Simulated assay, not measured.
Amino acid sequence: MRDKDRTNKRGGVLRRTAAAASLTLIVGALPVALATPASAFPADCEKYLASKGYKVGKWAKRACNVASGETGPVGDSVCRSGLWDLGVKEPYASEACDRA
């Protein structure tokens, strides 16, 4: 009878340890799973350009998409240079890419 009690105690400890580890993993992963992406919307970039009187065609949309898809200075610089090539003035290009 004694061996049976010892086995039950070990099994209970293992189950509780496994449950605690699972709970810790779930709680740790929950913020990542529920996190919303950064508010990077190419439409904000496009609307800003249109509000400044620029025609927003295929190439301007591509520049705005790059800014919203690429993180950091790489996406912003590609967006800005793309808009500059289209004739968008520097302050407007910078603001538009920042909005994307």
Rank of each mutant, 00 (worst) to 15 (best):
Y92H: 09
E95T: 08
R2H: 13
F41M: 12
I26M: 09
K61D: 03
D3F: 05
A29C: 05
K58M: 11
A33N: 02
G11F: 09
D3Q: 09
T36K: 13
S39W: 09
C64Y: 00
S39H: 10
G69D: 08
M1A: 09
C64H: 01
N65Q: 10
M1E: 09
S68D: 07
G11K: 14
A40L: 15
R6A: 13
L25F: 04
L83V: 05
V78P: 00
P37N: 08
R10W: 06
S94Y: 06
E46W: 11
P91Y: 02
V78R: 05
E70R: 07
D5F: 14
G72M: 15
D5V: 13
A96M: 02
C64T: 00
D76A: 12
D76C: 10
L23N: 06
P42S: 15
R80K: 12
C64W: 03
R16K: 08
D98Q: 11
S81G: 04
A19P: 00
A43K: 14
A43D: 14
R99T: 04
A33C: 04
E90Q: 08
G11T: 11
K55T: 15
D76E: 15
G11C: 12
A29R: 04
W84C: 02
R6D: 12
E90W: 06
T17H: 01
S77W: 06
V13F: 10
L23G: 03
T24R: 02
L49D: 01
K89W: 09
L34N: 11
S51E: 15
A60G: 05
V88Q: 00
A63K: 00
L34S: 10
L25E: 06
T24N: 07
A33G: 02
N8T: 14
G72F: 12
P37H: 03
S81Q: 09
